[in-house]
């Protein structure tokens, strides 16, 4: 049966430490380049700080990890790509980005409602010797192409290979988890198959306080957020949390 991998992020647990952001960069061979800033840097996983808009000491903050929301219906980036460099894998539901096909027009970046796509402004480079620490399961991307989160697809490959070696038909639940899920010290991120009713994520989306970002667009994103605080749930309607255009609740 086809899978539909999804994630459930508990904002009430996220301390905004950033372990997921760096674990993602380590796993996916994303470099840090000296000129990179919040517009030109690459962070497949980016944690934004949002607040309730009050003045100190009534101000309250929350941290919202943002990554590709893996839209399942009318996937905006896949729709606009002139190169067919973006596709949705029917077997996993993962939205894939093919750097080799990408011509760098960045139409997908404009189309993405979540600002979750990043452009390689430079060739990837690491300080001398640090290229030894690159993950062999992920190919470094070249300058001039767009990239984004693919739920650590290299780990999915690894899990499948292990299953094949063990003579199992399919990978076991929990055998495949993205790096951010593994790294989160607070246990705020859960990952699994939304089609499997026994999985944690399938149960989490029906919990009270569960919501998706910009659900009204009808793109069926596969990242579910959770918060018991009303003002936090307002981010579901905001264009970009943490930005200047932040919608205060």
């Amino acid at each position: 049966m086809n899978k539909r991998y999804g994630m459930s992020i508990d904002i009430d647990k996220c301390t905004g430490c950033g372990a997921c952001m760096v674990a993602c960069a380590v796993e996916n061979n994303v470099p840090a380049l000296p000129g990179a800033n919040d517009r030109r840097g690459i962070t497949w996983m980016r944690v934004y700080r949002v607040d309730n808009g009050e003045e100190y000491p009534d101000r309250r903050s929350a941290f919202v990890p943002m990554l590709c929301q893996q839209c399942g219906v009318e996937t905006p980036c896949a729709h606009v790509c002139p190169q067919q460099a973006v596709d949705v894998d029917p077997a996993t539901g993962i939205v894939g980005q093919m750097p080799e096909r990408c011509l760098g027009c960045r139409y997908c970046m404009a189309a993405c409602p979540y600002h979750a796509r990043y452009f390689n402004w430079w060739d990837p480079q690491w300080p001398a010797g640090m290229e030894k620490t690159l993950n062999p399961d992920v190919a470094p991307r070249m300058r001039g192409v767009v990239e984004k989160c693919n739920f650590c697809h290299g780990r999915y490959h690894r899990a499948k290979e292990r299953a094949a070696a063990a003579g199992e038909k399919d990978i076991r639940p929990g055998e495949y988890i993205p790096a951010c899920v593994e790294a989160c010290p607070a246990g705020a991120i859960r990952f699994g198959d939304l089609n499997d009713p026994s999985s944690e994520v399938a149960a989490a989306r029906h919990e009270a306080g569960s919501f998706r970002l910009l659900e009204k667009l009808g793109t069926d994103p596969k990242i579910y957020y959770h918060s018991t605080r009303d003002w936090v749930r307002q981010i579901a309607f905001a264009p970009k949390p943490g930005g200047k255009e932040n919608l205060h609740g």
């Binding site: 300080p127 620490t133 790294a183």
Partner: peptide
């Protein structure tokens, strides 16, 4: 050669996750 670090009993802090880069720090 270590290529990534993860906690055995839970997550690590961001410093710990990237500790294997330190030998190559410019």
């Amino acid at each position: 050669q270590p290529v990534s670090l993860a906690g055995v009993e839970g997550g690590l802090c961001p410093f710990g996750v990237t500790g294997h880069h330190l030998p190559y720090h410019p």
